[in-house]
Write a protein that binds this DNA or RNA. Structure first.
Length: 423
RNA sequence: GGAGAAAUGGCAGAGUGGUCGAUUGCGGCAGUCUUGAAAACUGUUGAAGGUCACACUUCCGGGGGUUCGAAUCCCUCUUUCUCCGCCA
């Protein structure tokens, strides 16, 4: 959520920046600002009334003590009248505030100035590519054939147990999952992140604060009896640890990481690109989250980007980094880098990580703030990224490293898998 | 799941209808003293809205109610603790 004072003070700039997303913010912003005027006016009136009522209440008390009952009765009546109009005003204020809030949450974050304009994924900027694309034999198999050939993943069995998109990992396939989780966590810890094991169900307040609610309701699984949501990413619980928190300056920066399964309904995304591991309802991911001083968030995002790149490098996977254009960035982001690894048999780039700076957009809803010496609390910047999501990494690893003897495990991963080849 | 108790500022802990945004202690910050530090002493120290700045308003777990007036009374929800039951 954008900050009201920021919209008020830098109206033109906010509109200009939102244009980078091809978002015409003018009507909404005008609505927000006019509601804001109403709000302040109404509140002033209400405050004056309440002030009067407070004064009268005190006088009534004094009069009673002095035994002047009749005078007190007169004031009581006066107070009743005030109460009537103040109740009305309070209702009015509440509805204005709700309307304003509703308009406000429709505004996406303002992109950073060097986010490229554009509407579609094709307009994302390819800013880096490294690693050699694998030269596979003509009969190279896509991962969904390899997983069944070596009995690594049973998609059919998952359908039986749960439904499509809930694979069952087996044997070396299961072991590989566990190895990757540990590998990614160890890398994150070595990079200074603190490991967190959060709950994987969250309440409504948490889902709201990180922006999954209200608009992405349909994307989450909901345990209706207790009204709890299965997390779509560890970002939700790990970021919500700081909901309604005022940090001390010395506590910054906060760097947390965590492994969780992630659950996504993926409503509406059927058809192509969903075969095998490409798109699942349940998958494993290691997430990195940072909470930093507002001056430091663009340094932090570069650091996170370097971290993800170094992990992919260790896995010897060819990858590229895209700077997302305004139209392709998520609602809450000010700057996003997407990482894609090349999957040799599908001959496709697969998104395996997304690293974003949300600036104050998230912290505004979270009320995540810090205090500069002697100053007023101010909002922090939050960032997060995947480091990394497993399924597509597995797809790329399997496809790119297939040989006639079996599938080779990258060197850095062998200590974790305990085997060097899948056969 | 059953019975009882409780929820107050960073922490501890008073406060059972007006003088309470809240006694006090600890912690934090500033100062006095000191070469410096500690100790001692003095002052200061929650958040949101609002204002050029004040004023003013709201917040004592959440929501609702009673009252001229609520941290204090009532209803309700949530959470925590103790006891019992069940259990990885």
């Amino acid at each position: 959520m954008l900050q009201l004072t920021h919209i008020r003070e830098k109206t033109e700039e906010v509109i200009a920046r939102l244009a980078i997303r091809n978002f015409d913010a003018k009507p909404l912003i005008n609505q927000v600002l006019s509601l804001d005027n109403d709000r302040r006016k109404t509140q002033n009136e209400l405050d004056a009334l309440l002030n009067e009522a407070n004064i009268i209440a005190k006088q009534v008390g004094d009069l009673f003590k002095q035994g002047k009952k009749e005078d007190a009765e007169v004031l009581k009546n006066k107070s009743a009248i005030i109460k009537e109009s103040s109740t009305k005003l309070a209702e009015q204020l509440k509805s204005i505030e709700e309307e304003q809030q509703q308009a406000l949450v429709q505004l996406p974050n303002t992109p950073h100035l060097n986010v490229p304009k554009g509407k579609t994924p094709e307009e994302n900027e390819n800013i880096h590519q490294e690693g050699e694309l694998p030269k596979l034999a003509a009969n190279a198999k896509p991962h969904w054939e390899l997983t069944s050939q070596y009995d690594l993943i049973d998609f059919e069995l998952g359908v039986k147990l749960t439904g499509a998109g809930f694979p069952v990992y087996k044997k070396q396939g299961a072991r590989l999952q566990r190895a990757l989780i540990n590998f990614f966590l160890d890398k994150a810890i070595a990079a200074g992140y603190t490991e967190i094991q959060p709950p994987i169900l969250v309440n409504e307040a948490s889902a709201y604060a990180t922006g999954q609610l209200p608009d992405k309701e349909g994307q989450m699984y909901l345990a209706t009896v207790d009204n709890l949501y299965l997390i779509p990413t560890a970002e939700v619980p790990i970021t919500n640890m700081y909901r309604d928190v005022i940090l001390k300056k010395e506590q910054l920066p906060i760097k947390n990481c965590g492994y969780t399964p992630c659950f996504r309904r993926e409503a509406g995304s059927y058809g192509k690109d969903v075969r095998g591991l490409n798109r699942l309802h349940q998958f494993d991911k290691i997430e990195i989250v940072q909470v930093v001083h507002p001056d430091k968030s663009y340094e932090a995002i570069e650091e996170m980007r370097d971290h993800v790149a170094s992990v992919l490098r260790e896995l010897e996977l060819p990858f590229r980094i895209l700077k997302l254009c305004g139209g392709d960035m998520s609602f809450a982001s000010a700057l996003t880098y997407d990482f894609e690894t090349y999957s040799g048999a599908q001959q496709k780039w697969l998104e395996v990580s997304s690293v974003s700076n949300f600036e104050t957009f998230q912290s505004n809803r979270l009320k995540l703030r810090f205090k500069e010496d002697g100053g007023k609390p101010q909002l922090l910047h939050t960032l997060n990224g995947s480091a990394l999501a497993l399924p597509r990494i597995v797809a790329s690893l399997l496809e790119n490293n297939q040989t006639s003897e079996g599938i080779k495990i990258p060197k850095s991963l062998i200590p974790y898998t305990g085997f060097s080849i899948i056969n």
